[in-house]
Amino acid sequence: MGICLFLNPIKGAGDDLPDVSGYATNIAQIDHYDLVDTDLAPYAALMLPAHLDQRFFGTMTGKVEDFLDGGGTLVFNGHVAWPMLPEFNTFVPLERSSLENLTIHRLCDHPVFDGVDPDHLTFRRGVAGFYARGCNPPPQGAIALHGVGPDHLPCDWVYDRPKGGRILMHAGNDLWMYAGSTDTTARIVPQLCNWAAGLN
């Protein structure tokens, strides 16, 4: 099975960042800044945290594009703020954070979210807004998976690059914050790692 390489940001500031250890078998983890010296050839997928230093990541566009051209999968979490890849566009926030605007709508079925109730994405212990509050606008040809608010801003999308490789975009907190949750969102981490490894 292909291995998903997770980047770990922010060391030594408490343990409130999600840890995928134990929630999927095909994972590896490195410290955030070690990416510069890491050979990506052994990995099927690169998993980027919302706390990514995007200025740093933006210095490695060539390396990441080579990885994608070779058939790799890139999973991005967070809001796009700095130049990184040509497929990434700057985050567009919701104009207002009302409950209606924060509702998550499924736009297309996808293996990563199979069996995940959209209501469990909209509400986390009764609080809306954790999942997404806007979108990173997709490139032409991408498939929107979830939309937020009445205008269905595409907060999640997948894109098969013409030159090879795939991008899964999530404009919010780490999808792996749901590791070990007690509702249907617990399905996300194992399904994400399976999909990213090419099993679906």
């Binding site: 919302a50 990514l52 230093d53 740093f56 809001h79 796009v80 700095w82 985050f91």
Partner: peptide, 10 residues
């Protein structure tokens, strides 16, 4: 300080 994150950018 700017850590290069999206939230520092905003």
């Amino acid at each position: 300080l700017d850590g290069g994150t999206y939230y520092h950018h905003r």
